[in-house]
Computed example of a mutant assay.
Amino acid sequence: MRFKTQSSPPPPQVDLIPMLTVMMGVLAFFVVVTTTLSQETLVDIQLPAEDQADADVPFPADPFIVELVGENEVLLNGQPTDLDTLATQMEAYLSRNPNDTVFLLPHQDLPYEQVMQFLGDMRRIGGNRVSLAIEAQP
């Protein structure tokens, strides 16, 4: 009598090429996203020390206050002005008053990104002599 021998099937083959292709695609995605997020420009903000926070800072006799009311809507000391005129007047003010500061007073409903972008543009003109101001709430 002849017995049939059961032959065991060959072990399954695992093809790693498609898995490696997907993993390399995911890795490339994260590398691209990481490099684009790390290239954001930041605005350098210097906060006063604790002992200076309560001290009275002398306010200039003729302050240069820029109010950011809306997108491309700017008031200079309460008077509407355009961005080109503002840049010219700001340069002139800073050259006349070497120890004074330019204040940016944004409207509180404006998006944070818009305020920081405008502050960065002002800092390109005035450097560290541009300050972000807030109105004290009663």
Rank of each mutant, 00 (worst) to 15 (best):
Arg2Ala: 15
Phe3Glu: 03
Lys4Trp: 08
Gln6Ile: 12
Gln6Cys: 06
Gln6Asn: 06
Ser7Ile: 09
Ser7Tyr: 09
Ser7Leu: 07
Pro9Phe: 13
Pro9Thr: 15
Pro11Arg: 06
Pro11Gly: 07
Pro12Arg: 12
Gln13Lys: 15
Leu16Gly: 12
Leu16Tyr: 14
Met19Gln: 05
Met19Tyr: 10
Met19Val: 03
Leu20Phe: 08
Thr21Tyr: 11
Thr21Lys: 07
Thr21Asn: 15
Met23Ser: 09
Met23Phe: 14
Met23Trp: 11
Met24Lys: 12
Leu27Lys: 02
Leu27Ala: 15
Leu27Ser: 14
Ala28Trp: 02
Phe29Arg: 01
Val31Asp: 10
Val31Thr: 09
Val33Thr: 01
Thr34Asn: 07
Leu37Thr: 06
Leu37Phe: 11
Glu40Thr: 13
Glu40Met: 12
Glu40His: 14
Thr41Trp: 11
Leu42Arg: 11
Leu42Asn: 14
Ile45Thr: 00
Gln46Ala: 09
Leu47Ser: 11
Pro48Val: 04
Pro48Ile: 10
Ala49Glu: 05
Asp51Trp: 13
Gln52Pro: 01
Ala53Phe: 03
Ala53Leu: 09
Asp54Met: 13
Asp54Ser: 14
Ala55Asp: 03
Asp56Trp: 07
Asp56Glu: 13
Val57Gly: 02
Phe59Asn: 05
Phe59Gly: 12
Phe59Arg: 04
Phe59Cys: 00
Ala61Cys: 00
Ala61Leu: 08
Asp62Glu: 01
Pro63Met: 00
Pro63Val: 10
Glu67Cys: 09
Leu68Pro: 00
Val69Trp: 13
Gly70Arg: 01
Gly70Ser: 10
Glu71Phe: 02
Glu73Leu: 08
Glu73Gly: 11
Val74Pro: 06
Val74Gln: 08
Leu76Glu: 03
Leu76Val: 04
Asn77Arg: 07
Asn77Lys: 04
Gly78Leu: 04
Gly78Asn: 02
Gln79Ile: 08
Thr81Gln: 14
Thr81Ile: 03
Thr81Trp: 12
Thr81His: 00
Asp84Leu: 12
Met90Ile: 06
Met90Arg: 02
Leu94Gly: 03
Ser95Phe: 07
Asn97Met: 05
Asn97Phe: 04
Val102Ser: 01
Phe103Glu: 13
Leu105Gln: 09
Leu105Asn: 05
His107Glu: 12
Leu110Val: 02
Leu110Lys: 01
Leu110Trp: 02
Pro111Asn: 09
Glu113Asp: 11
Gln114Cys: 07
Val115Tyr: 08
Met116Lys: 07
Met116Glu: 13
Met116Ile: 15
Met116Val: 10
Phe118Leu: 06
Leu119Gly: 07
Leu119Pro: 10
Gly120Thr: 08
Gly120Lys: 04
Asp121Met: 09
Asp121Lys: 08
Asp121Trp: 12
Met122Lys: 05
Met122Thr: 06
Arg123Pro: 12
Ile125Val: 09
Gly126Ile: 04
Val130Lys: 05
Val130Tyr: 07
Val130Gln: 03
Val130Thr: 10
Val130His: 02
Val130Asp: 02
Leu132Met: 07
Leu132Gly: 01
Leu132Phe: 06
Ala133Phe: 12
Ile134Gln: 14
Glu135Val: 08
Glu135Gln: 11
Ala136Asn: 08
Ala136Leu: 06
Gln137His: 10
Gln137Gly: 07
Gln137Phe: 11
Gln137Met: 10
